[in-house]
Every structure is written in C-alpha cells, then in structure tokens.
Design a protein around this nucleic acid. Structure first.
Length: 564
RNA sequence: UGCCCUGUAGUGUAAUUGGUUAACACGUCUGACUCUGGAUCAGAAGAUUCUAGAUUCGAGUUCUAGCAGGGCAACCA
C-alpha cells in the first residue's frame, strides 16, 4: 500500500527552474527557445533538445520559441527552414507565436555594436584572419594585442560604417570586442563580433554584407525575446562568460536570460555530426536525408518511428552534464513499446517455402478470422483465406531439428496461427541441389482456431499465407548503419566510412496475406513473429513497399547465437 | 603545460540536499504464462559511488591533492 508511488525526480535543469520559480525570478516567467541553424536536417540529438526546451515550457506553463539562428548566409538555406518546422511539428510540439529568426534582429544588433564602439569596447581590426588567429595565442599562453586595438572611437565608427556600406571585400576587416587578450578563456580574447560576407541571405537578401557572429547574436536574441532559460549543449559552456559579458553591455534592468548547458545525446552504432550526415548524403552512401537508416528525424519517421516513441526515449534517457552513449537497443526498446500497442498484426512470409496440406480438399477455401491486435480490443478482426497450398517461413522448418527447436519438422506438429494444427509427413527435395521444395503435411480438421479441438497444447505457433491468395510485396530490411558500436574505432589509415555496414539494407520480395493489398504509405504493421514494418512513401497500391522499422525480440535467435 | 566541465552496476538516470540497507529503467540470467520463441508476470545476479587523505557521531554528497575522460586556440553554430 504505502510507498508505491515513484516520485519522479527532477533533472538538474528542472531544479534550477523550480528554484527560480520559488524565488520569483523573472516574475515567475518560464520562457525557453529552440535555436537551430538552418544548415542541415534535424536529427535525434536535436529531438532530445527539442523535448527538453519545449518540455520545460509545457511543464511549467511557460513558452518556447522557435528561432532560426541564421547568422551565416553562406551555409544556410530555406530548404532546411522548412524541414525543421515540419520535424518539430511532427514530434508534437508547437512554438510560441511565429517562428523567429536571428536575422530579424540584425538592425538592433548593429545598433548595439555601434553602442559598444562608442563605449570603447569594440574596434575594427584589419589584421588578416591568420594573424588574428596566431595572435590569439594558445590556451596555455596569453595572446598578443592587435595593433588596431587602440583606434579612436571616431575611427572605429567610420570604419564600421564603411564595412556595413560594402566598401571592403570579404575577410578584410572584422569588428572585435575589446575584452582581455590574456584571458585563460580563449573566447574572451577579443572575440570577433562581425565579419564581412557579401552573400545573399535567405531572408534579408542583399541588405547586409556584414553578419554578426554567434556570440554577438545568440544572447541578445534571447534577451530580445525575453527568454529566461537558454538551454544548449556542453560545448557552449566556455562561451557562457562571453554570453554574459555581451548581455551586460546591452541590458537594462535586472532581467537576464541564463544559459544552461547539458550533455548532448550520443547513440552507439550511430553518428550525429551534421557534417558527416551530409557526407553520407552527398557521397551516395544513403539515398537522402530521409533514408530510413539515417538518424535524422525525417529518416526515423520514414523508418516507422513514432513521435511518441521518440518523446518517451528523450524522457527516459534523461538530462545531465555527463558524457553519455545510449545503447541503440534502448531506442529500439522505446520504439517497440509503442508499436506493440498500436500496430495491426498481419502475416507476411519473407522467405517462403511451400506447404502442401495433403488431406485438405483441393479447391476448398476457408475464411479464417484473425485478431488485428491482441493489445487493443477495439482493433477488430480481419479475414484470412486458408487453402491446400500454403507458404510458411523456411526457417520455421527443420528436417533435423536441434533439441530446443519447437517448430515444424518431420513427424512433428505445429499450429498455424488462426488456422489448423498440422503434422509434417515428409519433404520433397530437389534431387540435384537437395533444396527443400515442398513440405508435406496433414491437418486435423477438429483443430481449427476457435474450435474445442484446438485447445490442445502445441509447442509452437507459426505464421502462414495461402499460396494462391498471397500477394508479392517488396520488403526493405534495414539494419544498423555501422558495424562498430563506435564508428570512430578504425584501423590505421582508415576512417569511419570503412565502418559502414554493407548489409544495412537488404531488399526482398515477400508473400503477404491479401488484407495488406490496400496498405497506404505511413501505415504501421507488425508482421507477426518478425518485426514492425511501415509502408514506405515509394509504395503504391499495385506495388507495395515496406520498410522494416525494427525486428521483434527473438529469444530463439539468442539461443542459437549462444551455441556458437 | 592554462582554463572550464564530468567521474555512481554492462548502459543511462536517481538518491529526501550531510543521515543509516545506494534506487529506477534498459540489458543479462532463472522461471511462469501464452494460438506471435512477441507481449505480460515473478524472481536473481551485478557497485570498494575514480583514488588517497581531511572534516564529521555520520560523506555518493563538503574540503584538499591526485588520476581518468571530455571541451576550449573558426571571420562556424
């Protein structure tokens, strides 16, 4: 009776939020944001961040903005903007109001930069990029101050205006903050605030030829939007002093957004870097961003993942600052948990072998009733034709079975799910190759599913389809993209590409029960005893294509694996 | 060698904020049940809480010193 309630503990960010709430900080407002750069597709790591920032807002009655961090026009594109919006909605989240863009704030950011110059805290530097980099020094040694560091305010103002007006070519000048060239934090060694890029921006067009850097844009954007908790991944930890510094220069009053960092998601057998995902696409290792093997949200969607399963995964994985590698099998567990509840069951034989039921009348067809989903009593039933010639899975028969093999073998009985109990009487083999061409059986008419005679104990139940009624479908069997848990673990001279799994996609033609003929793209099924599958977007009524989302757990496979 | 962050079963996350027997989930192993070798149910194994000191009646939690891992030296975000 007592102590059965498991109190859901808070993660460290929720603790901070609740403490801020207790202290009445920001008038008890909670406002987060998700700030993707539109230069690639969202992946499951972003899904974690999305669930966090939107989830915190939901939980504490706050708001969450979507803001495109579009300060670098040369890598960014509207194609990505659209996909990002779609993916967030698909995951089940809605941002507050309209989507925001850092580029919406370019005017304000510029004015603040001018203000900074007037305060003597920023200067135009015409040192080359290489020299600036060299002068910044190394972490263990202080940097060297630029010769431009002590220009007059007037000179800086004039130069900055001319930068803005397009008088200088790309890369010839930057605006730098004047902070501390000997800071142990490299980011405080007079960071670049603006650079010249004569590039067309996807939103502001040709209005600007100078663009703010991340550090000069991000905190200010948070500030403008009234963000209270700005959640980001660990690599921005060292930026926080700069984030705070920038805000202190421009902020009036007490309000400050607060940056909090958490550890990014890593999953074994998986890569998450945008650069590498792009390489997989560009070099043709996968068919596109939404290839079902990709960890992108659109790839997972096409693979058959559900938003629920991804949200549950993000919740279960938790939030902390410690580096982590989640097991891919855990993601799959979260997936199965949901699919088990919602997927309609059907029978599909992927590697068929013919069964002849010798004592079943030729030409006779019976209609069997099959439960659509034992986990959902409202799912109803469907009809399955039964006849004299059937297909079963080749793996479900063994001529000379080992001890723990419970399925069909000569002299043994097996139950055909929703059908009859059959007894194997023999096999017909190709005389030359020895390959089994047909399995001979007899059926017991009293054991039809639902009849009393069927209540007999039989060791195993297998799936089947009626040969004359079955339809051919294309099935794409997907497996993990990499052969190594850590794709970076490579021999001398090789790179992560060499760890790509050559068997990550196998395409087969399978025999499906006729009820599947009307399957529509996106629909999710459980092929009984095999796995979860969804109808691919390339599928059509005449030519069905299924993607294997994930296999069912398979204890038999575990047993056989152990014997080797 | 500078600065910052992080070290808790195989994996991830907890631990009433210094309180006694370190919890939960996944995984692993047993068993039960089953017209999916799925699902479900019951149980078990598995941790010197990175190490060594210190403070304390009491330390996973505080302090010091080490060690290990990660991050930081883009006109990327």
């Amino acid at each position: 009776m007592e102590n059965t309630d498991i109190v859901k503990t808070l993660n460290f960010i929720e603790e901070i939020v609740e403490e801020d709430l207790r202290n009445g900080k920001n008038n008890k407002r909670i406002h987060t944001r998700f700030p993707p750069e539109p230069n690639g597709y969202l992946h499951i790591g972003h899904a974690k961040a999305i669930c966090l920032s939107f989830g915190i807002a939901q939980k504490y009655n706050g708001k969450c903005n979507l803001r495109f961090d579009d300060t670098n026009p040369v890598t960014e594109d509207v194609e990505y903007v659209d996909s990002i919006r779609e993916d967030i909605h698909w995951l089940g989240f809605n941002w507050e109001g309209e989507a925001h863009y850092a580029s919406d704030y370019f005017d304000q950011l510029f004015d603040w930069a001018v203000m900074l110059i007037r305060m003597g805290k920023a200067y135009v530097d015409e040192t080359s990029a290489e020299e600036i980099s060299a002068d910044r020094g190394v972490p263990t040694q202080p940097g060297k101050e630029s010769a431009c560091r002590n220009r007059t305010v007037e000179e800086n103002l004039d130069l900055f205006m001319r930068m803005k007006n397009g008088e200088f070519p790309d890369g010839t000048r930057v605006l730098r903050a004047k902070i501390d060239m000997s800071s142990p934090n490299m980011h405080m060694r007079d960071p670049v605030l603006y650079r010249i890029k004569h590039a067309r921006h996807h939103r502001t067009g040709d209005k600007w030829c100078i663009y703010p850097m991340y550090d000069w844009a991000h905190g200010q954007s948070d500030y403008i939007e009234g963000i209270t908790h700005s959640l980001c991944t660990l690599e921005f930890e060292v930026h926080r002093p700069l984030y705070d510094w920038c805000l202190d220069q421009i902020a009036e009053g007490d309000y400050r957004p607060r940056q909090i960092e958490f550890a990014r998601l890593n999953i074994n057998y998986t890569i998450m870097s945008k650069r590498r995902l792009l390489q997989l696409v560009n070099d043709g290792y996968v068919s596109g961003w939404d290839d079902p093997r990709m960890p992108t949200i659109c790839g997972l969607r096409r693979r058959g993942y559900t938003p629920e399963s991804l949200r549950n995964f993000a919740e279960a994985v938790g939030i902390a600052k410690r580096e982590n590698v989640i097991e891919l099998t855990f993601l799959e567990h979260c997936l199965r948990e949901h699919l088990n509840r919602i997927a309609r069951r059907v029978m599909v034989v992927s590697n068929p072998v013919k069964v002849l039921v010798e004592n079943y009348p030729e030409g006779k067809v019976e209609i069997m009733q099959a439960e659509n989903n034992p986990e959902d009593e409202n799912a109803g039933t469907r009809d399955m034709p039964f006849s004299r010639e059937l297909y079963i899975e080749r793996d479900d028969f063994m001529e000379d079975p080992p001890k723990k093999f419970f399925r069909l073998s000569p002299g043994n009985e097996v139950r055909l799910k929703n059908g009859y109990i059959i007894l194997c009487t023999g096999v017909d083999k190709d005389q030359v190759t020895g390959e089994i061409q047909q399995i001979r059986c007899t059926y017991d008419p009293l054991t039809r599913s639902g009849l009393e005679g069927s209540n007999r104990k039989v060791k195993a139940t297998i799936h089947w389809v009626s040969a004359q009624h079955a339809i051919d479908v294309e099935v794409r069997l997907y497996d993990r993209l990499f052969t190594k848990a850590d794709p970076d673990e490579v021999e001398e001279g090789k790179d992560w590409i060499s760890n790509l799994n050559p068997a990550s996609l196998t395409t087969i033609t399978a025999k499906a029960e006729p009820a599947l003929a009307a399957a529509l793209p996106g629909e999710k099924y459980q092929f009984q005893r095999t796995g979860y599958f969804c109808v691919d977007k390339e599928s059509s009524l005449g030519r069905l294509v299924f993607n294997r989302t994930v296999t069912l757990k398979d204890d038999w496979a575990k047993i056989t694996a152990k014997q080797h």
